[in-house]
């Protein structure tokens, strides 16, 4: 059962990463990248690395996503 969840999680990471690269909308790309990070932190936890999982969730999924979103908006303001 747990192994099945792991496979689903890996599939989500793959789809989210490819989607983040191929998406035309920058905001969607950033959100998909955040999703990949968040789901990857579950994998770290499953592999017995809770410290890394916390870093990935706090920095990879939360702060990086926010900083990218703010940067996207700021650059759009300048372009307009």
């Amino acid at each position: 059962m747990m192994l099945a969840i792991d496979f689903v999680v890996v599939a989500v990471i793959f789809v989210a990463a490819v989607g983040a690269m191929s998406c035309k909308n920058l905001v969607s790309s950033v959100l998909l990248g955040g999703l990949a990070s968040l789901v990857a932190s579950y994998l770290f936890l499953r592999m017995g690395a809770p410290d890394v999982a916390m870093t990935e969730a706090a920095i990879g999924a939360a702060l990086t996503t926010v900083i990218f979103l703010v940067a996207t908006r700021r650059t759009q303001e300048v372009e307009e």
Partner: peptide, 16 residues
Amino acid sequence: PGGGFQGGAVVASAVL
């Protein structure tokens, strides 16, 4: 589990 980097990041999300 966790430490300076993780705790600092959580504090920064509070500031966010």
